[in-house]
């Protein structure tokens, strides 16, 4: 009897192992272009917005390592920042309660794959709207205007983007638009890319590079964390942030845009902006 039970569980394990192994090892075939398979399909039946409403929870991909926008506080374990407050406000406008929300950590490298894998409903993570990205995802209206800038150690000879020349080591983050921008503006500089902003900032502090480049909004957060570093020069690009959603979810995009418009007209947007950025939005 015992033997029989054992052989049955044996078989079950073999099967599950095979399934797992086959997926892990051989999934290259039959999938073709991973991009079109995940990004292009439009699910028949219920839209994502309906699904969000029926599960009564909004799942948002945010940064956990970016001060002012999305930073996990070791003391409380909570994630806090501008993007988080926007996410909560949207949960309130879509589901009626700002606490009906789940935050998942994304990095610039992982956010689009995670969105296309349906792990998150939307990305609110300092994400610039670009034409290339529009082919992958749908964006909401602009909810924040940033511009790429430079962060250096105080007293650095680099004071603007003109000083970034051959021999300058520029630190950036994998998958961010700032990498392409700086390569275009300063093609002679060496660009080193890291997993996330924490690693890049730690690398700057460790002297692994001369300058860190990304959106000024994120750099100001780093400045707030460590006063030995400063943002220099004028922003040299426009980085309009948008909320990214899976392609074809028109109803969700509309709901998000309505939510954003309501936030702006009620003045709540300005409150959130001032709370994190320290000044009223220009315009």
């Amino acid at each position: 009897m015992r033997k029989k039970w054992m052989s049955v569980s044996f078989m079950l394990f073999v099967i599950s192992a095979l399934v797992l192994a086959a997926c892990g090892g051989g999934s290259g075939n039959g999938n073709g272009n991973g991009n079109s398979a995940a990004g292009g399909e439009s699910e028949a039946g219920a839209s994502l917005l309906d699904e969000i409403k029926s599960r009564d929870k909004l799942v948002v991909g945010v940064k956990f390592d970016t001060k002012l926008f999305g930073l996990k506080d070791p003391a409380s374990g909570e994630v806090e920042g501008f993007d988080i407050d926007i996410a909560k406000a949207l949960a309130k406008s879509i589901l009626g309660d700002e606490n009906k929300i789940e935050l998942k950590e994304v990095t610039s490298k992982t956010r689009i794959p995670m969105l296309n894998n349906n792990e998150i409903d939307m990305i609110i993570a300092t994400m610039t709207i670009t034409e290339e990205r529009r082919e992958q995802v749908d964006f909401s209206e602009v909810y924040f205007e940033a511009g790429q800038s430079l962060l250096v150690k105080k007293g650095s000879p680099i004071q603007s983007v003109e000083d970034v020349t051959s021999g300058t080591k520029v630190l950036a983050v994998k998958g961010a638009t700032s990498v392409d921008n700086i390569k275009e503006i300063a093609p002679d500089a060496t660009v080193l890319e890291f997993e996330n902003y924490q690693d890049a900032f730690s690398a700057l502090k460790a002297g692994q590079g001369d300058v860190l480049t990304t959106d000024n909004s994120i750099l100001y957060g780093m400045m707030a964390q460590d006063a030995n570093y400063e943002v220099v020069g004028e922003p040299f690009t426009d980085e309009p942030y948008g909320i990214a959603m899976k392609k074809g979810e028109t109803a969700l995009v509309e709901a998000v845009n309505e939510g954003l418009a309501a936030l702006k007209s009620s003045g709540e947007y300005n409150t959130i902006y001032e709370k994190w950025i320290g000044e009223a939005p220009s315009e």
């Binding site: 892990g24 999934s27 039959g30 999938n31 991973g34 398979a37 995670m114 894998n117």
Partner: peptide, 17 residues
């Protein structure tokens, strides 16, 4: 392999946190 299981398996319908 870690990166694969996280971002490739979902492509074939296996979603893992």
């Amino acid at each position: 392999i870690i990166f694969f299981t996280r971002f490739a398996l979902p492509d074939i319908g296996i979603k893992l946190d």
